[in-house]
Amino acid sequence: MSEAGIEIVALLEHTTPPSGLWLDALRRLKRNPGALLGLAVVAVFIIVAIFAPLIAPHQPNDQNLALVGSGCCPGPSWGHLMGVDDLGRDEFSRVAYGTRYSLVIGVVSVAVGLSFGMLLGAIAGFVGGVVDSVIMRSMDVMLAIPGLLLAIGIAAMLGPSLWHVMIAVGVANIPIFARLLRGTVLGQRESDYVLAARSVGVRKRIILSSHILPNSMSPVIVAGTLALATAIIDVAGLGFLGLGSQDPATPEWGTMLTNADLYLGTAPFLALFPGLAIVVIVLAFNLIGDGLREALDPKLRGRA
């Protein structure tokens, strides 16, 4: 072997082993302390959601009116870690059960926005022409109404209920995902591998589903994770405005805050705990989203 050949072999032995985009991203995500913290927090919340009946000392709707007999409301104590609400219910148990709602809320809203948004964006980007114009101009119209207001409008149309609020927040997110996916699909459509697939006669639908879409996924994953965070905030906000669950027994954090606002003078902890729960879960999803953004950024690939 020539000397140059030996040098190349030596060089190859020192580079990182070959890996795909996802493995590489995962490796970098594991080195990001923020993202790891976020993942740990989400894991804790999932565990609390699953084992809520075991973790919560009381049922979320068990009322002990004797506790609020001498005024609202007894603050945190060993018996009631987060105090007792105006109806004599254990706040800690309600916050713990509320975890179930928050996770479902995030996933359902993002699923609605993501699925319809991706579908519309992919069609607009891939088909182009009149279809593209019609879809994207409709998205522009939706974007002309400030997001939260659009969600409020849709929720009002569907009638007050927690499911409707989740759908409303999801629908308000459709134009954002549609724009994102259209942009990436347009970028991919002109790339060489698509040209190669087209030239060997692969059908359009197959090109879109097995060539373009998988390669357009990384921005969608990042935006989807960050959207989980905003969806939880928005649904809580609509719940706070009274558009969410009409059943006061539902331990949804946003709805709990509406009530807590009334007792702010005497029982501020009733607002503090559900509010902090929202902040922590939203913070966790934001950390994961930022970590994923850095891990999936092709400009940063191979570094760090």
Binding site: A229, G237, L257, A260, D261, I278, V279, V282, L283, N286
Partner: peptide, 15 residues
Amino acid sequence: SLIGISVPVFFLAII
């Protein structure tokens, strides 16, 4: 900036 985007406006308002 992380805290700013993670705290709901209405919760901060109440606090």
